[in-house]
Design a protein around this nucleic acid. Structure first.
Length: 524
DNA sequence: CCCGCCAATGCCATTTACTA
DNA sequence: TAGTAAATGGCATTGGCGGG
Protein backbone atom coordinates (compact mmCIF):
# COMPACT_ATOMS: atom_id res chain seq x y z
CA UNK A 1 0.00 0.00 0.00
CA UNK A 2 1.46 3.28 -1.09
CA UNK A 3 1.30 6.01 1.51
CA UNK A 4 -0.95 8.83 0.46
CA UNK A 5 0.92 11.76 -0.95
CA UNK A 6 -1.28 14.10 0.96
CA UNK A 7 0.41 17.41 1.76
CA UNK A 8 -0.87 17.41 5.29
CA UNK A 9 0.39 13.93 5.85
CA UNK A 10 3.70 14.82 4.33
CA UNK A 11 3.97 17.75 6.66
CA UNK A 12 3.22 15.55 9.61
CA UNK A 13 5.77 13.06 8.41
CA UNK A 14 8.36 15.82 8.14
CA UNK A 15 7.56 16.91 11.66
CA UNK A 16 8.03 13.41 12.90
CA UNK A 17 11.32 13.08 11.16
CA UNK A 18 12.54 16.34 12.58
CA UNK A 19 11.42 15.32 16.01
CA UNK A 20 13.10 11.99 15.63
CA UNK A 21 16.39 13.54 14.63
CA UNK A 22 16.23 15.95 17.51
CA UNK A 23 15.61 13.21 19.98
CA UNK A 24 18.06 10.72 18.62
CA UNK A 25 21.04 12.34 20.30
CA UNK A 26 19.37 12.58 23.65
CA UNK A 27 18.17 9.05 23.38
CA UNK A 28 21.57 7.61 22.78
CA UNK A 29 23.05 9.49 25.68
CA UNK A 30 20.63 8.04 28.11
CA UNK A 31 20.04 4.69 26.59
CA UNK A 32 19.94 2.83 29.84
CA UNK A 33 17.19 5.04 31.05
CA UNK A 34 14.96 4.04 28.23
CA UNK A 35 14.91 0.54 29.52
CA UNK A 36 13.20 1.88 32.54
CA UNK A 37 10.78 3.82 30.45
CA UNK A 38 10.10 0.76 28.41
CA UNK A 39 9.28 -1.16 31.49
CA UNK A 40 6.83 1.49 32.45
CA UNK A 41 5.23 1.27 29.09
CA UNK A 42 4.78 -2.44 28.94
CA UNK A 43 4.13 -3.47 32.43
CA UNK A 44 1.11 -3.53 34.54
CA UNK A 45 1.94 -2.85 38.08
CA UNK A 46 -0.13 -4.43 40.70
CA UNK A 47 -1.07 -3.05 44.00
CA UNK A 48 0.28 -5.51 46.43
CA UNK A 49 -0.74 -5.36 50.00
CA UNK A 50 -2.86 -7.13 52.54
CA UNK A 51 -6.38 -7.25 51.16
CA UNK A 52 -7.95 -5.73 54.22
CA UNK A 53 -5.55 -2.85 54.05
CA UNK A 54 -5.86 -2.40 50.38
CA UNK A 55 -8.07 0.65 50.28
CA UNK A 56 -6.20 2.36 53.03
CA UNK A 57 -2.85 1.47 51.62
CA UNK A 58 -3.76 3.02 48.35
CA UNK A 59 -4.50 6.19 50.13
CA UNK A 60 -1.33 6.18 52.11
CA UNK A 61 1.29 5.03 49.73
CA UNK A 62 0.78 3.06 46.65
CA UNK A 63 3.01 0.10 47.16
CA UNK A 64 3.62 -1.45 43.87
CA UNK A 65 5.42 -4.58 42.98
CA UNK A 66 6.10 -4.93 39.35
CA UNK A 67 5.15 -8.22 37.89
CA UNK A 68 7.62 -10.07 35.78
CA UNK A 69 6.87 -9.49 32.18
CA UNK A 70 7.92 -10.30 28.71
CA UNK A 71 10.95 -8.79 27.11
CA UNK A 72 12.44 -6.68 29.78
CA UNK A 73 12.45 -9.42 32.35
CA UNK A 74 15.28 -11.24 30.63
CA UNK A 75 17.60 -8.35 30.96
CA UNK A 76 17.07 -8.12 34.64
CA UNK A 77 17.69 -11.78 35.03
CA UNK A 78 21.09 -11.66 33.41
CA UNK A 79 22.38 -8.59 35.11
CA UNK A 80 20.89 -7.86 38.48
CA UNK A 81 19.00 -10.64 40.05
CA UNK A 82 15.75 -9.29 41.28
CA UNK A 83 15.03 -9.73 44.89
CA UNK A 84 11.37 -9.40 45.56
CA UNK A 85 11.71 -10.14 49.24
CA UNK A 86 14.01 -7.22 49.71
CA UNK A 87 11.84 -4.95 47.64
CA UNK A 88 8.86 -5.92 49.66
CA UNK A 89 10.77 -5.21 52.84
CA UNK A 90 11.64 -1.74 51.67
CA UNK A 91 8.10 -1.13 50.67
CA UNK A 92 6.93 -2.20 54.10
CA UNK A 93 9.33 0.16 55.73
CA UNK A 94 8.05 2.97 53.64
CA UNK A 95 4.58 2.00 54.58
CA UNK A 96 5.45 2.29 58.24
CA UNK A 97 6.55 5.85 57.79
CA UNK A 98 2.93 6.74 57.17
CA UNK A 99 4.01 9.20 54.61
CA UNK A 100 1.32 10.00 52.15
CA UNK A 101 1.40 11.19 48.61
CA UNK A 102 -0.86 13.99 49.61
CA UNK A 103 -2.56 15.26 52.69
CA UNK A 104 -5.85 16.15 51.10
CA UNK A 105 -8.61 13.67 50.38
CA UNK A 106 -9.07 12.31 46.93
CA UNK A 107 -11.12 14.44 44.67
CA UNK A 108 -14.13 12.48 43.68
CA UNK A 109 -16.06 12.83 40.52
CA UNK A 110 -19.80 12.55 40.56
CA UNK A 111 -20.88 9.00 40.07
CA UNK A 112 -23.10 8.77 37.10
CA UNK A 113 -25.73 6.84 39.01
CA UNK A 114 -26.01 9.64 41.55
CA UNK A 115 -25.98 12.36 38.99
CA UNK A 116 -29.14 14.41 38.71
CA UNK A 117 -29.92 16.15 35.48
CA UNK A 118 -32.45 18.80 34.67
CA UNK A 119 -34.02 16.51 32.12
CA UNK A 120 -34.61 12.86 31.74
CA UNK A 121 -33.99 11.21 28.47
CA UNK A 122 -37.71 10.79 27.93
CA UNK A 123 -38.13 14.55 28.09
CA UNK A 124 -35.60 14.96 25.34
CA UNK A 125 -36.98 12.16 23.24
CA UNK A 126 -40.35 13.84 22.98
CA UNK A 127 -39.02 17.00 21.39
CA UNK A 128 -39.69 17.83 17.78
CA UNK A 129 -37.03 19.30 15.55
CA UNK A 130 -38.51 22.72 16.08
CA UNK A 131 -38.49 22.41 19.85
CA UNK A 132 -35.00 20.98 19.81
CA UNK A 133 -33.81 23.87 17.71
CA UNK A 134 -35.30 26.31 20.19
CA UNK A 135 -33.59 24.53 23.02
CA UNK A 136 -30.26 24.52 21.25
CA UNK A 137 -30.68 28.18 20.58
CA UNK A 138 -31.61 28.87 24.17
CA UNK A 139 -28.41 27.29 25.38
CA UNK A 140 -26.31 29.05 22.79
CA UNK A 141 -25.34 26.02 20.79
CA UNK A 142 -26.94 27.82 17.87
CA UNK A 143 -26.33 31.54 17.58
CA UNK A 144 -29.05 34.05 18.18
CA UNK A 145 -30.97 34.94 15.08
CA UNK A 146 -29.72 37.98 13.29
CA UNK A 147 -26.44 38.02 15.11
CA UNK A 148 -23.45 39.81 13.70
CA UNK A 149 -20.73 37.79 12.05
CA UNK A 150 -17.20 38.83 11.38
CA UNK A 151 -14.97 37.65 8.61
CA UNK A 152 -12.54 34.99 9.73
CA UNK A 153 -9.86 36.35 7.45
CA UNK A 154 -9.88 40.07 8.05
CA UNK A 155 -12.17 40.52 11.04
CA UNK A 156 -14.44 42.85 9.09
CA UNK A 157 -18.17 42.67 9.67
CA UNK A 158 -19.84 40.48 7.08
CA UNK A 159 -22.85 41.65 5.17
CA UNK A 160 -25.80 39.91 3.63
CA UNK A 161 -24.90 38.66 0.18
CA UNK A 162 -27.12 39.11 -2.76
CA UNK A 163 -28.26 35.71 -3.82
CA UNK A 164 -25.91 34.31 -6.36
CA UNK A 165 -25.43 30.64 -5.90
CA UNK A 166 -28.92 29.33 -6.04
CA UNK A 167 -32.23 28.95 -4.38
CA UNK A 168 -30.88 27.97 -1.01
CA UNK A 169 -28.69 30.99 -0.60
CA UNK A 170 -30.98 33.12 1.48
CA UNK A 171 -28.55 32.74 4.32
CA UNK A 172 -25.31 33.78 2.70
CA UNK A 173 -23.02 36.38 4.11
CA UNK A 174 -20.02 37.88 2.50
CA UNK A 175 -16.99 39.92 3.37
CA UNK A 176 -16.42 42.90 1.18
CA UNK A 177 -12.72 42.95 1.94
CA UNK A 178 -11.70 39.47 1.07
CA UNK A 179 -11.63 38.11 -2.43
CA UNK A 180 -11.62 34.50 -3.35
CA UNK A 181 -10.20 33.20 -6.61
CA UNK A 182 -12.97 32.37 -8.99
CA UNK A 183 -15.51 34.25 -6.92
CA UNK A 184 -15.88 37.87 -6.11
CA UNK A 185 -16.12 37.95 -2.40
CA UNK A 186 -15.47 35.56 0.38
CA UNK A 187 -18.84 34.08 1.13
CA UNK A 188 -20.25 32.10 3.96
CA UNK A 189 -23.21 29.94 3.20
CA UNK A 190 -25.61 28.92 5.91
CA UNK A 191 -24.17 31.54 8.15
CA UNK A 192 -26.83 30.79 10.75
CA UNK A 193 -25.24 27.49 11.58
CA UNK A 194 -21.63 28.30 10.88
CA UNK A 195 -19.25 27.10 13.59
CA UNK A 196 -21.75 24.55 14.73
CA UNK A 197 -21.77 20.85 13.95
CA UNK A 198 -24.60 21.44 11.49
CA UNK A 199 -22.60 23.43 9.04
CA UNK A 200 -20.09 20.87 7.87
CA UNK A 201 -20.76 18.30 5.24
CA UNK A 202 -24.13 18.05 3.69
CA UNK A 203 -25.89 18.59 6.97
CA UNK A 204 -27.72 21.54 5.57
CA UNK A 205 -27.04 21.47 1.89
CA UNK A 206 -29.09 19.67 -0.71
CA UNK A 207 -32.14 20.91 1.04
CA UNK A 208 -31.60 18.80 4.13
CA UNK A 209 -32.79 20.43 7.27
CA UNK A 210 -30.48 19.84 10.21
CA UNK A 211 -31.76 17.09 12.44
CA UNK A 212 -31.82 19.07 15.62
CA UNK A 213 -33.82 16.63 17.69
CA UNK A 214 -31.49 13.78 16.84
CA UNK A 215 -28.51 15.92 17.68
CA UNK A 216 -29.98 16.82 21.01
CA UNK A 217 -30.52 13.16 21.78
CA UNK A 218 -26.94 12.50 20.80
CA UNK A 219 -25.72 15.19 23.16
CA UNK A 220 -27.70 13.62 25.95
CA UNK A 221 -26.18 10.22 25.23
CA UNK A 222 -22.68 11.58 25.06
CA UNK A 223 -23.32 13.44 28.26
CA UNK A 224 -23.91 10.20 30.08
CA UNK A 225 -20.97 8.60 28.35
CA UNK A 226 -22.80 6.18 26.14
CA UNK A 227 -20.58 3.91 24.02
CA UNK A 228 -20.67 4.96 20.37
CA UNK A 229 -22.01 1.70 19.05
CA UNK A 230 -25.09 2.11 21.18
CA UNK A 231 -25.73 5.61 19.94
CA UNK A 232 -27.84 4.84 16.85
CA UNK A 233 -30.31 3.02 19.04
CA UNK A 234 -30.94 6.12 21.07
CA UNK A 235 -30.50 8.79 18.46
CA UNK A 236 -32.60 7.39 15.65
CA UNK A 237 -36.32 6.99 15.53
CA UNK A 238 -38.68 5.78 12.89
CA UNK A 239 -38.94 9.17 11.27
CA UNK A 240 -35.35 10.34 11.58
CA UNK A 241 -32.48 8.15 10.53
CA UNK A 242 -29.09 9.60 11.13
CA UNK A 243 -26.52 7.95 8.95
CA UNK A 244 -23.37 6.37 10.23
CA UNK A 245 -21.18 9.08 8.78
CA UNK A 246 -23.23 11.91 10.20
CA UNK A 247 -23.17 10.28 13.58
CA UNK A 248 -19.42 9.89 13.42
CA UNK A 249 -19.03 13.48 12.46
CA UNK A 250 -21.30 14.73 15.23
CA UNK A 251 -19.49 12.72 17.85
CA UNK A 252 -16.21 14.01 16.54
CA UNK A 253 -17.43 17.58 16.63
CA UNK A 254 -18.77 17.34 20.16
CA UNK A 255 -15.58 15.75 21.39
CA UNK A 256 -13.61 18.43 19.68
CA UNK A 257 -15.55 21.13 21.46
CA UNK A 258 -15.20 19.32 24.76
CA UNK A 259 -11.47 19.07 24.29
CA UNK A 260 -11.22 22.69 23.29
CA UNK A 261 -13.01 23.91 26.37
CA UNK A 262 -11.03 21.57 28.57
CA UNK A 263 -7.82 22.97 27.19
CA UNK A 264 -9.08 26.48 27.58
CA UNK A 265 -9.99 25.95 31.18
CA UNK A 266 -6.68 24.49 32.14
CA UNK A 267 -4.73 27.10 30.26
CA UNK A 268 -4.42 29.31 33.29
CA UNK A 269 -4.15 26.67 35.94
CA UNK A 270 -1.13 27.36 38.04
CA UNK A 271 0.12 24.91 40.58
CA UNK A 272 1.51 26.87 43.45
CA UNK A 273 2.45 26.07 46.98
CA UNK A 274 1.87 22.54 45.98
CA UNK A 275 3.46 19.23 45.50
CA UNK A 276 3.39 18.45 41.85
CA UNK A 277 3.75 15.15 40.19
CA UNK A 278 4.44 14.59 36.59
CA UNK A 279 4.23 11.98 34.00
CA UNK A 280 4.45 11.66 30.31
CA UNK A 281 2.18 9.05 28.87
CA UNK A 282 2.28 7.45 25.53
CA UNK A 283 -0.04 5.16 23.80
CA UNK A 284 1.06 1.56 23.87
CA UNK A 285 0.23 -1.59 22.01
CA UNK A 286 -0.43 -5.13 22.94
CA UNK A 287 2.85 -6.90 22.43
CA UNK A 288 1.42 -9.31 19.93
CA UNK A 289 0.05 -6.69 17.65
CA UNK A 290 3.22 -4.70 17.77
CA UNK A 291 5.09 -7.76 16.58
CA UNK A 292 2.62 -8.51 13.89
CA UNK A 293 2.76 -4.96 12.67
CA UNK A 294 6.48 -5.17 12.56
CA UNK A 295 6.41 -8.11 10.23
CA UNK A 296 3.84 -6.88 7.83
CA UNK A 297 5.19 -3.39 7.70
CA UNK A 298 8.69 -4.66 7.14
CA UNK A 299 7.51 -6.58 4.18
CA UNK A 300 5.74 -3.60 2.87
CA UNK A 301 8.72 -1.41 3.30
CA UNK A 302 11.07 -3.91 1.72
CA UNK A 303 9.13 -3.79 -1.47
CA UNK A 304 9.64 -0.11 -1.58
CA UNK A 305 13.17 0.36 -0.39
CA UNK A 306 15.37 -1.84 1.72
CA UNK A 307 17.00 0.86 3.76
CA UNK A 308 13.74 2.01 5.30
CA UNK A 309 13.81 1.01 8.88
CA UNK A 310 10.33 0.49 10.18
CA UNK A 311 9.11 3.40 12.19
CA UNK A 312 6.62 3.43 14.94
CA UNK A 313 4.63 6.55 15.50
CA UNK A 314 3.66 7.47 18.99
CA UNK A 315 0.42 9.29 19.18
CA UNK A 316 -1.39 10.86 22.00
CA UNK A 317 1.51 11.72 24.25
CA UNK A 318 0.51 13.99 27.05
CA UNK A 319 2.31 15.65 29.90
CA UNK A 320 0.32 15.31 33.07
CA UNK A 321 0.94 17.75 35.84
CA UNK A 322 -0.99 17.34 38.99
CA UNK A 323 -1.02 19.11 42.31
CA UNK A 324 -0.82 16.68 45.15
CA UNK A 325 -2.62 19.00 47.51
CA UNK A 326 -4.77 21.14 45.35
CA UNK A 327 -5.75 18.16 43.18
CA UNK A 328 -5.66 20.37 40.18
CA UNK A 329 -4.57 18.53 37.12
CA UNK A 330 -3.27 19.80 33.87
CA UNK A 331 -3.05 17.55 30.87
CA UNK A 332 -1.07 19.02 28.05
CA UNK A 333 -0.79 17.26 24.71
CA UNK A 334 2.62 16.71 23.24
CA UNK A 335 3.25 16.38 19.52
CA UNK A 336 3.56 12.97 17.94
CA UNK A 337 6.89 11.29 17.69
CA UNK A 338 8.34 8.61 15.51
CA UNK A 339 10.91 6.07 16.42
CA UNK A 340 12.35 2.82 15.35
CA UNK A 341 9.94 0.00 15.68
CA UNK A 342 10.65 -2.17 18.63
CA UNK A 343 12.89 0.42 20.19
CA UNK A 344 12.18 1.33 23.75
CA UNK A 345 9.71 4.11 24.17
CA UNK A 346 11.13 7.45 23.27
CA UNK A 347 11.76 9.97 25.92
CA UNK A 348 10.23 13.31 26.34
CA UNK A 349 12.59 16.08 25.51
CA UNK A 350 13.57 18.87 27.76
CA UNK A 351 12.72 21.33 25.06
CA UNK A 352 9.10 20.35 24.69
CA UNK A 353 8.44 20.02 28.39
CA UNK A 354 9.97 23.12 29.87
CA UNK A 355 7.58 25.69 28.40
CA UNK A 356 4.61 23.70 29.64
CA UNK A 357 6.09 23.44 33.09
CA UNK A 358 6.96 27.08 33.39
CA UNK A 359 3.45 27.92 32.39
CA UNK A 360 1.69 25.77 34.92
CA UNK A 361 4.07 25.61 37.81
CA UNK A 362 5.10 28.29 40.19
CA UNK A 363 8.54 26.90 40.49
CA UNK A 364 9.68 28.60 43.64
CA UNK A 365 6.86 27.29 45.77
CA UNK A 366 6.57 23.77 44.50
CA UNK A 367 8.20 20.56 45.52
CA UNK A 368 7.95 17.91 42.88
CA UNK A 369 7.52 14.20 42.84
CA UNK A 370 7.98 13.15 39.35
CA UNK A 371 8.51 10.43 36.89
CA UNK A 372 12.07 9.76 35.97
CA UNK A 373 13.52 10.54 32.61
CA UNK A 374 16.28 12.79 31.51
CA UNK A 375 14.00 15.41 30.05
CA UNK A 376 12.04 15.76 33.25
CA UNK A 377 15.15 15.71 35.40
CA UNK A 378 16.70 18.45 33.39
CA UNK A 379 13.53 20.50 33.49
CA UNK A 380 13.33 20.28 37.26
CA UNK A 381 16.90 21.35 37.54
CA UNK A 382 16.30 24.25 35.26
CA UNK A 383 13.33 25.32 37.33
CA UNK A 384 15.14 24.88 40.60
CA UNK A 385 12.58 22.53 42.01
CA UNK A 386 13.65 19.64 44.20
CA UNK A 387 12.19 16.57 42.58
CA UNK A 388 11.72 13.13 44.03
CA UNK A 389 11.69 10.90 41.03
CA UNK A 390 10.16 7.51 40.81
CA UNK A 391 12.28 4.59 39.85
CA UNK A 392 10.17 2.60 37.56
CA UNK A 393 12.78 0.07 36.66
CA UNK A 394 12.94 -1.39 40.10
CA UNK A 395 10.66 -3.57 42.10
CA UNK A 396 10.61 -1.03 44.81
CA UNK A 397 8.33 1.58 43.44
CA UNK A 398 7.83 4.17 46.09
CA UNK A 399 11.13 5.53 47.19
CA UNK A 400 11.06 8.13 49.85
CA UNK A 401 13.54 10.74 48.95
CA UNK A 402 15.36 12.98 51.33
CA UNK A 403 16.49 16.48 50.63
CA UNK A 404 18.51 18.89 52.67
CA UNK A 405 16.25 21.67 53.83
CA UNK A 406 18.77 24.12 52.56
CA UNK A 407 17.86 23.43 48.97
CA UNK A 408 14.45 24.92 49.44
CA UNK A 409 13.45 28.42 48.65
CA UNK A 410 11.47 30.14 51.34
CA UNK A 411 8.17 29.52 49.63
CA UNK A 412 9.02 25.90 49.00
CA UNK A 413 9.91 25.56 52.66
CA UNK A 414 6.52 26.89 53.58
CA UNK A 415 4.92 24.33 51.32
CA UNK A 416 6.83 21.53 52.91
CA UNK A 417 6.09 22.75 56.41
CA UNK A 418 2.45 22.88 55.58
CA UNK A 419 2.55 19.37 54.24
CA UNK A 420 4.48 18.11 57.24
CA UNK A 421 2.17 19.75 59.73
CA UNK A 422 -0.68 17.43 58.90
CA UNK A 423 -1.11 14.99 61.74
CA UNK A 424 -2.60 11.94 60.16
CA UNK A 425 -1.01 11.42 56.83
CA UNK A 426 1.67 13.98 56.27
CA UNK A 427 3.04 14.23 52.81
CA UNK A 428 6.41 15.27 54.08
CA UNK A 429 8.45 14.61 57.17
CA UNK A 430 11.25 16.65 58.61
CA UNK A 431 14.20 15.08 60.26
CA UNK A 432 14.39 15.74 64.00
CA UNK A 433 16.78 18.60 63.52
CA UNK A 434 14.88 19.88 60.51
CA UNK A 435 18.03 19.74 58.50
CA UNK A 436 16.42 17.55 55.90
CA UNK A 437 13.01 16.30 54.96
CA UNK A 438 11.67 13.42 52.99
CA UNK A 439 8.78 12.98 50.66
CA UNK A 440 7.39 10.13 48.65
CA UNK A 441 8.76 10.00 45.19
CA UNK A 442 6.85 9.02 42.15
CA UNK A 443 3.81 10.16 40.38
CA UNK A 444 0.87 8.28 41.73
CA UNK A 445 -1.41 11.24 41.52
CA UNK A 446 -0.66 11.54 37.85
CA UNK A 447 -0.92 7.86 37.23
CA UNK A 448 -4.31 8.04 38.82
CA UNK A 449 -5.28 10.84 36.51
CA UNK A 450 -4.17 8.78 33.57
CA UNK A 451 -5.98 5.77 34.88
CA UNK A 452 -9.29 7.57 35.18
CA UNK A 453 -8.85 8.93 31.70
CA UNK A 454 -8.13 5.49 30.38
CA UNK A 455 -11.09 4.05 32.19
CA UNK A 456 -13.35 6.52 30.54
CA UNK A 457 -11.86 5.76 27.18
CA UNK A 458 -12.35 2.08 27.79
CA UNK A 459 -15.90 2.68 28.76
CA UNK A 460 -16.66 4.31 25.47
CA UNK A 461 -14.62 1.74 23.66
CA UNK A 462 -12.07 4.24 22.53
CA UNK A 463 -8.98 2.87 24.19
CA UNK A 464 -6.28 2.32 21.62
CA UNK A 465 -8.67 2.64 18.74
CA UNK A 466 -8.41 6.32 18.49
CA UNK A 467 -7.43 7.60 15.14
CA UNK A 468 -4.01 9.08 15.62
CA UNK A 469 -5.18 12.55 14.97
CA UNK A 470 -7.96 12.20 17.49
CA UNK A 471 -5.87 10.77 20.25
CA UNK A 472 -5.49 13.98 22.19
CA UNK A 473 -8.97 15.23 21.56
CA UNK A 474 -10.60 12.02 22.66
CA UNK A 475 -8.61 11.85 25.85
CA UNK A 476 -9.35 15.43 26.79
CA UNK A 477 -13.01 15.02 25.96
CA UNK A 478 -13.23 11.89 28.07
CA UNK A 479 -11.64 13.69 30.99
CA UNK A 480 -14.07 16.55 30.69
CA UNK A 481 -17.08 14.27 30.53
CA UNK A 482 -15.84 12.49 33.59
CA UNK A 483 -15.75 15.69 35.56
CA UNK A 484 -18.73 17.36 33.97
CA UNK A 485 -21.24 14.80 32.82
CA UNK A 486 -24.68 15.55 31.57
CA UNK A 487 -26.52 17.19 28.73
CA UNK A 488 -26.26 20.64 30.23
CA UNK A 489 -22.50 20.38 30.36
CA UNK A 490 -22.30 19.28 26.75
CA UNK A 491 -24.52 22.10 25.59
CA UNK A 492 -22.58 24.66 27.57
CA UNK A 493 -19.40 23.35 26.08
CA UNK A 494 -20.70 23.66 22.55
CA UNK A 495 -21.83 27.18 23.28
CA UNK A 496 -18.49 28.12 24.76
CA UNK A 497 -16.71 26.71 21.76
CA UNK A 498 -18.87 28.53 19.27
CA UNK A 499 -18.73 31.82 21.08
CA UNK A 500 -15.01 31.50 21.31
CA UNK A 501 -14.39 30.79 17.69
CA UNK A 502 -17.26 32.00 15.55
CA UNK A 503 -16.06 34.75 13.31
CA UNK A 504 -12.67 34.96 14.98
CA UNK A 505 -9.81 35.72 12.69
CA UNK A 506 -8.07 32.52 11.73
CA UNK A 507 -10.99 30.25 12.53
CA UNK A 508 -12.08 28.98 9.18
CA UNK A 509 -15.58 27.53 9.48
CA UNK A 510 -14.58 24.75 7.13
CA UNK A 511 -11.97 23.67 9.65
CA UNK A 512 -14.40 23.24 12.48
CA UNK A 513 -13.44 20.17 14.43
CA UNK A 514 -10.70 19.28 12.01
CA UNK A 515 -7.69 18.50 14.09
CA UNK A 516 -5.30 18.43 11.21
CA UNK A 517 -6.16 21.89 10.02
CA UNK A 518 -6.99 23.56 13.27
CA UNK A 519 -4.90 22.23 16.09
CA UNK A 520 -3.01 25.26 17.25
CA UNK A 521 -5.08 25.49 20.38
CA UNK A 522 -4.09 21.96 21.24
CA UNK A 523 -0.36 22.56 21.47
CA UNK A 524 -0.24 26.28 22.06
C1' DC B 1 -24.80 11.32 2.18
C1' DC B 2 -24.81 6.04 2.10
C1' DC B 3 -22.49 1.71 1.82
C1' DG B 4 -19.19 -1.99 1.97
C1' DC B 5 -14.59 -3.20 2.93
C1' DC B 6 -10.53 -3.57 5.70
C1' DA B 7 -6.53 -2.73 8.77
C1' DA B 8 -5.64 -1.85 13.48
C1' DT B 9 -6.38 -2.92 17.89
C1' DG B 10 -8.37 -4.31 22.75
C1' DC B 11 -9.71 -8.08 25.51
C1' DC B 12 -11.00 -12.69 27.03
C1' DA B 13 -10.06 -17.64 26.97
C1' DT B 14 -7.01 -21.09 25.86
C1' DT B 15 -2.67 -23.10 24.62
C1' DT B 16 2.27 -23.24 24.68
C1' DA B 17 6.82 -22.40 26.66
C1' DC B 18 9.63 -22.06 30.42
C1' DT B 19 11.52 -22.60 34.99
C1' DA B 20 12.10 -24.30 39.66
C1' DT C 1 5.50 -32.12 37.47
C1' DA C 2 3.34 -27.92 38.64
C1' DG C 3 2.84 -23.21 38.35
C1' DT C 4 3.30 -19.06 35.77
C1' DA C 5 4.40 -16.01 31.95
C1' DA C 6 3.93 -15.38 27.21
C1' DA C 7 1.80 -16.35 22.93
C1' DT C 8 -2.07 -17.28 20.27
C1' DG C 9 -7.00 -17.74 18.72
C1' DG C 10 -11.09 -15.63 18.28
C1' DC C 11 -14.22 -11.97 18.44
C1' DA C 12 -15.77 -7.27 18.29
C1' DT C 13 -15.33 -2.32 17.44
C1' DT C 14 -13.45 1.81 15.20
C1' DG C 15 -12.33 4.88 11.64
C1' DG C 16 -10.36 5.64 6.90
C1' DC C 17 -11.22 5.05 2.07
C1' DG C 18 -13.33 4.85 -2.32
C1' DG C 19 -17.34 4.39 -5.17
C1' DG C 20 -22.22 5.43 -6.03
Amino acid sequence: MEPEEDPVELAMERDWQANLAAEEAARQKAEDRWDAVYLLENTRSTVLCVPALRAEACLLIMVKIRSKKFGAAEKLKHSAKRDRGAARGVNKQHHKLKLACSSTPQQKTVQLRDFQQEWFFSDIVGLTDKQAEMMLRRFGVLPKKGGVLHCWQCGERMSQASSSTGADSGDVKQCCNCKVPGRHYLQLRHSQVAWTPFWQGQGCTRGYAPKYAAFLRLCYCLGVRTPPDALPHYVNDTKTQVGRDTLRWWVEAVRYALAYVEMKEQKDVLLKADGASHLVVRQGFTARHAKKRQRTKEEKYRKKSAKDTPKQAQHGRVLVMSGRFSKKTVVRPLPHTVQKRGAPGGGETFREILPLMTRHIESDSVVAASDSGSGLTKAWQALGVPAAQARHGLDEMTPTVSFPSACLSSKQARTVRKAAAVKKKPAAQFSPKKRSFRIVGGDNQCELQIAVGKNQLRRVNALGRMAPRHAHVTLLAARRLLQNPGLRSVLDTLRAYREDRAGKVGCNPAHFADVLKDSRWLFA
